[in-house]
Simulated assay, not measured.
Amino acid sequence: MPSRTAGSTPKDDPAPQQPDMPEVNTVTAEDIAASLRAGFSDFLARPVMSGFFGLFYALFGLLIVWCLVWLGKIWMIIPAAVGFPLVAPFAAAGLYEMSRRLQTGESFGWSDILTVMADQRKREMGWMAFVTLFIFWVWMYQVRLWLAIILQNSSFSGFDGFLHIVFFTPQGWTFLAVGTCVGAFLSAVLFTVTVVAMPMLLDRETNFVSAMLTSIRVVRESPVVMLGWAAILSVTLLLSLVPAFLGLIVTLPVLGHATWHLYRRAVPPAEG
Rank of each mutant, 00 (worst) to 15 (best):
G94T: 03
G94D: 04
L95K: 04
L95A: 05
Y96F: 13
Y96L: 09
Y96M: 06
Y96N: 06
E97Y: 03
E97T: 06
E97P: 00
E97M: 02
E97L: 07
M98G: 01
M98C: 07
M98Q: 07
M98T: 04
S99E: 01
S99H: 03
S99L: 07
S99N: 05
R100N: 08
R100D: 03
R100W: 07
R101M: 12
R101C: 00
R101K: 14
L102M: 11
L102S: 05
L102E: 03
L102P: 05
Q103Y: 00
Q103A: 13
T104L: 06
T104S: 12
T104D: 11
T104F: 06
T104Y: 10
T104W: 02
G105K: 09
G105I: 01
G105W: 08
G105A: 13
G105M: 07
G105E: 09
E106R: 08
E106P: 01
E106H: 09
E106T: 05
E106M: 13
S107M: 06
S107W: 02
S107R: 13
F108D: 01
F108C: 01
G109A: 12
G109H: 11
G109W: 09
G109Y: 02
G109C: 11
G109N: 15
W110P: 00
W110F: 15
S111M: 13
S111I: 09
S111D: 15
S111N: 00
S111Y: 10
S111R: 14
S111A: 12
S111F: 07
S111H: 02
D112K: 07
D112R: 03
D112S: 08
D112H: 07
D112E: 15
I113D: 02
I113P: 00
I113C: 08
I113V: 14
I113Y: 06
I113S: 04
I113L: 04
L114F: 15
L114P: 04
L114A: 13
T115N: 15
T115C: 06
T115E: 13
T115K: 14
T115S: 15
T115Y: 11
V116C: 10
V116R: 14
V116S: 14
V116T: 15
M117E: 10
M117F: 02
M117K: 08
M117S: 06
M117Q: 11
M117P: 01
A118I: 03
A118H: 00
D119N: 13
D119K: 14
D119G: 10
Q120F: 12
Q120V: 01
Q120E: 15
Q120R: 14
Q120N: 12
Q120C: 04
Q120D: 10
R121Q: 05
R121S: 11
R121C: 10
K122H: 00
K122I: 01
K122G: 00
K122E: 03
R123H: 12
R123P: 03
R123N: 12
R123C: 04
R123K: 14
R123L: 11
R123I: 02
R123S: 04
R123Q: 13
E124K: 10
E124Q: 14
E124M: 13
E124S: 12
E124Y: 11
E124N: 12
E124D: 14
M125Y: 11
M125G: 02
M125V: 08
M125C: 08
M125N: 07
M125L: 13
G126L: 01
G126D: 06
G126I: 03
G126S: 09
G126W: 10
G126Y: 09
